[in-house]
Design a protein around this nucleic acid. Structure first.
Length: 469
RNA sequence: GGGAGCUUAGCUCAGUCGGUAGAGCAACUGGCUGUUAACCAGUUUGUCGGGGGUUCGAGUCCCUCAUCUCCCGCCA
C-alpha cells in the first residue's frame, strides 16, 4: 500500500473477533455503559462502543482508586477502561476484562430515558436521537447499512453502472403520486400571472419543480448507454398515507436493463432478493439472531425457506380466478379489472403461496403509461413482487419500446407528450425491449428484520405531520 | 382522504358500581465476595392528554380538540 494505515484504537469488534489470541494481555477500551451491577466490594459493567452487537463485561473491585465513583456509574455513561483480558468464569460470556483503571469520560444524567428494560417502539420513536443506542435499533441500522452495501455489491458484481438521477425534477407528471414542490418564491406574496395562477417563470428554475418520486424516466436514458444500470437514492411522496409501510421520504433501488424482457426482470429481482437475504444472514448473524428471538420467532426459518425455494409466478388473471374460486369473503369482491387490494395480496402471498410471489400482466387501465402493451391489447407487462407480512416490495415492468404505442398511451391517459419529449426520443434512437423495477429499500429491511413499522427502519423518519429531529 | 382504538408516575401498565390514585421497573439510600434485565430492604415520584359539561362528588359518564397507534385507499 502506498499510504500509511490509520492507527486506530482497539474496538469491541476487534476484541470479539480475536479474544482467543488476546487472553492475559493488557488492553484499553472506550465505550458506553449498557448496564451495570454492583456489590459491596466489586461490580460488573457491560460496555459497548457500537462496533459490535455484543457487549464486553468489565469486572472491577475496590482496589480501583476511584471505586466509589465507579459504583455510582449510570447506564449510558462513557468510559475508558484499562485492564487485562481474561477468560470469564461466568456462563454468558467467554471472556471479560479485569479492570486496573477506569476513567469516567461523561457521566450519564439520571434522567437518561433509556433504561435496562424493554421499551415500546412507539416510545422510542419519540426519542429518535437516542434510540440507535438500544439493541433493537442498533441491530436494525446495522442491517440497513449491510443491505445498502449488498445492493451495490450485487449490481456492481454484475457490471451494472450506478447512476445518480436528480433529486429535483422539472416534470410534474411522473404519475407515481403526489409530489413535494421545490420553490424559492416568497409564499407570502408570490408572483402571479394575469389569471391569478402562480407565475413559476419567476421561480428559481424558471418553471415548476418538485422532489423526485422516481428516477426511472431518467435512468432509462442511461440504460440506453450502459445497457445495465441502477439508481439507489432518496425518493419523496407527498401522499398523506397513514400506514405502517409508507413514509414521505424513503429510499428506492431502480435497476433498468436493455435487451431484456419481463421474464429477465423477474429473474434478476428474485436473484437480488435472495442475494440480499443471504448476505445479511452471513454478515450479521448476531443481529439476525436477536430479531429471531425478540421481534419475530419465525424469521430465520422463513428466510432460509425463501432462499431455498422458487418464488411463485402468477398472472393477474390467474390470481383473480384463484381469488374468486377461493369463495373467501373479501371486503372488496375480486373481479377482473379492479386492482388487487391489500387483502387480496395478503391472501395470495400468505395463504396460497406462503412465500414471495410475482403477479404479472395487469389490466392496462390500472398501471402506468410506460408499461409495455401485451398482445391481447388489454394487459401490460407489469410485475409486482408480494411478500408475506410486508406486501408489495417490488413493482416493475417491461417498458413500452414502440414509439407509436407509447404516444398512444400518453394521450389515452390525458398526459402531454411534449412533457416527455426526451423520454420519447429513446424510442426513436435505437429502441429495444428493456425492463426494470423499483425495490422499496425500507420494505426490504422490514422483510429481513421482521420489524413491522417503516418508521422503525429509517433513522429519522418523515411522515405526514412529523418532521421532528 | 375514510374508519377504529389509545392517552393514568421517568418507563410498562392496573384502577371494579362515579366516592379525591396503585403495582412492577427506573432513580435515590442502605445491604450483599461472581453478577447476567443480578438480588434484598427502604425512600421519592402524578395538572389521570387539553378544554367544556352532567353530578353533592368524575381517572371513571357526555361533548370537543389534540397526540399517538392500527386498518383501508395511494404505492415502494
Amino acid at each position: 500500500m502506498g499510504y500509511k494505515e490509520a492507527d486506530v484504537a482497539l474496538t469491541v469488534h476487534d476484541i470479539w473477533k480475536s479474544y482467543t489470541e488476546r487472553i492475559d494481555t493488557e488492553i484499553e477500551l472506550s465505550g458506553w455503559v449498557r448496564t451495570e451491577r454492583t456489590s459491596k466490594d466489586f461490580g460488573f459493567i457491560e460496555l459497548n462502543d457500537g462496533t459490535f452487537f455484543k457487549n464486553i463485561q468489565i469486572v472491577y473491585d475496590n482496589t480501583l482508586n476511584n471505586f466509589d465513583e465507579i459504583t455510582r456509574i449510570t447506564t449510558g455513561s462513557s468510559l475508558t477502561v484499562k485492564g487485562k483480558l481474561i477468560s470469564s468464569p461466568g456462563d454468558k460470556q467467554p471472556f471479560e476484562i479485569k479492570a486496573s483503571n477506569i476513567e469516567v469520560l461523561g457521566l450519564c444524567d439520571q434522567v437518561f430515558p433509556l433504561q435496562k428494560k424493554r421499551h415500546s417502539v412507539e416510545y422510542l420513536r419519540t426519542i429518535a436521537h437516542l434510540r440507535p443506542r438500544t439493541n433493537l435499533f442498533r441491530a436494525v441500522f446495522k442491517v440497513r447499512s449491510l443491505v445498502a452495501f449488498a445492493i451495490h455489491k450485487f449490481f456492481t458484481d454484475r457490471n451494472f453502472v450506478y447512476v445518480h438521477t436528480p433529486i429535483i425534477t422539472g416534470s410534474d407528471c411522473e404519475g407515481a403520486g403526489e409530489m413535494f414542490g421545490v420553490s424559492t418564491l416568497d409564499m407570502n406574496k408570490p408572483p402571479r400571472k394575469e389569471d391569478g395562477s402562480l407565475d413559476y417563470s419567476k421561480d428559481f428554475f424558471g418553471k415548476q419543480t418538485n422532489l423526485t418520486v422516481s428516477g426511472q424516466l431518467n435512468v432509462e436514458n442511461f440504460c440506453m448507454a450502459f445497457r445495465n444500470v441502477y439508481t439507489f437514492g432518496p425518493t419523496f411522496r407527498a401522499e398523506k398515507s397513514n400506514t405502517q409501510r409508507h413514509a414521505s421520504e424513503f429510499w428506492m433501488i431502480e435497476p433498468e436493463m436493455a435487451f431484456a424482457d419481463i421474464q429477465d426482470d423477474m429473474d434478476i429481482s428474485e436473484e437480488m432478493v435472495k442475494y440480499l437475504i443471504s448476505y445479511v444472514l452471513e454478515n450479521a448473524p448476531e443481529e439476525m439472531a436477536f430479531f429471531n428471538q425478540w421481534v419475530d420467532k419465525g424469521l430465520l426459518e422463513r428466510l432460509s425457506f425463501v432462499l431455498n425455494s422458487d418464488f411463485g409466478r402468477v398472472t393477474y388473471t390467474e390470481a383473480m380466478d384463484e381469488l374468486i374460486r377461493s369463495g373467501k369473503k373479501f371486503d372488496y369482491k375480486p373481479e377482473w379489472g379492479i386492482d388487487l387490494q391489500t387483502e387480496h395480496e395478503r391472501y395470495l402471498t400468505e395463504e396460497v403461496y406462503k412465500r414471495p410471489v410475482f403477479v404479472t400482466d395487469y389490466p392496462k387501465d390500472i398501471k402506468a403509461f410506460y408499461m409495455r402493451m401485451n398482445e391481447d391489447g388489454k394487459t401490460v407487462a407489469a410485475m409486482d413482487l408480494l411478500v408475506p407480512g410486508v406486501g408489495e416490495i417490488i413493482g416493475g415492468s417491461q417498458r413500452e419500446e414502440r414509439y407509436d404505442f407509447l404516444v398512444k398511451r400518453i394521450e389515452e391517459m390525458g398526459l402531454s407528450k411534449e412533457d416527455y419529449w426526451w423520454y420519447l426520443e429513446l424510442r426513436k434512437f435505437g429502441t429495444n425491449k428493456h425492463c426494470g423495477f423499483g425495490l422499496g429499500f425500507e420494505r426490504m429491511v422490514m422483510y429481513m428484520t421482521g420489524v413491522e413499522n417503516i418508521k422503525d427502519v429509517i433513522p429519522f423518519p418523515r411522515t405526514p405531520g412529523n418532521c421532528e429531529f
